[in-house]
């Protein structure tokens, strides 16, 4: 799964840029016509699932064997169950530590698929399928994608440190992406914490940060950052050993 051809890598990069734009459009949009804002928003709701499918296809046409799929299925199931157990309580997010640790061991492609399928399965099992689902899937997929590119450390302390730092950073980034998604819906377009079409990136960023603060979004993100890094500190040493063992057994020389 790690041997993506160049053309496929370019496609994945473009898909990632496109999806970041689809999250961040309120910050960027130049059109001042209310109609056009709404068109953008509505089109993106339909476009995001398609971009996810295309990205998954890119990874699936890589070298993905039954064994990686089996590990993927197990981790997705565990993640979905764990997410359901923690869902709903303020800021407690129990799905991310497994995505990050899994992606760190099995690299980016696995991380993207694990992130998006975990969210999908937990939604299907009861956390709720909604218009936000493709956006959550993409955001979690990107968290996994990036976790797969983290530098490898030989010593355990370095490993743990990089994972915790990444957990904190990605919790806030994921939170910001999802807040960006509901921002235009909940803050409208007229208040001083709402996006102002055509106002430019800097001014809108200020408005967005104000919204994050007054809507409590940052608190929520902090909760996610704390739970995720705490869970990583608690489980990563053992989990990394287990997963690396599975990775070793799964990938070996074959020669006849």
């Amino acid at each position: 799964m790690n041997r993506q051809p160049l053309i496929s890598r370019i496609s994945i990069a473009i898909a990632a840029i496109a999806s970041v734009l689809m999250f961040a459009w309120p910050l960027l949009i130049a059109a001042t016509n209310q109609n056009e804002n709404q068109i953008a928003q509505a089109v993106f709701i339909a476009l995001m699932p398609i971009i996810i499918v295309l990205t998954l296809v890119e990874f699936a046409t890589g070298d993905i064997g039954s064994r990686q799929l089996a590990i993927l299925g197990v981790m997705t199931a565990i993640n979905a169950v764990v997410r359901l157990l923690g869902a709903g309580t303020a800021g407690i997010e129990t799905a991310f530590f497994l995505i990050i640790i899994g992606a760190y061991v099995f690299r980016s492609g696995f991380g993207f698929i694990l992130g998006s399928t975990s969210i999908l399965v937990s939604a299907l099992l009861g956390a709720g399928v909604g218009p936000w689902l493709p956006f959550q899937m993409m955001a979690a997929g990107l968290v996994g994608l990036a976790a797969g590119t983290l530098p490898r450390f030989k010593n355990k302390f370095g490993e743990l440190a990089i994972l915790v730092i990444y957990a904190v950073v990605s919790s806030f980034i994921y939170g910001a992406l999802m807040t960006l998604w509901n921002w235009p819906f909940l803050a409208g377009s007229e208040s001083s914490v709402a996006y102002k079409a055509g106002a430019g990136l800097v001014s809108n960023l200020g408005r967005f940060l104000n919204y994050e603060i007054v809507s409590g979004g940052l608190l929520w993100d902090a909760g996610r950052a704390i739970t995720t890094s705490a869970l990583i500190l608690l489980t990563a040493p053992a989990l990394l050993a287990t997963l690396k063992r599975a990775a070793n057994r799964a990938g070996f020389v074959k020669q006849i």
Partner: peptide, 11 residues
């Protein structure tokens, strides 16, 4: 064996 277990086979 060897595709799912890893390892080296001959024969």
């Amino acid at each position: 064996v060897p595709h799912f277990t890893g390892g080296i086979a001959s024969g």
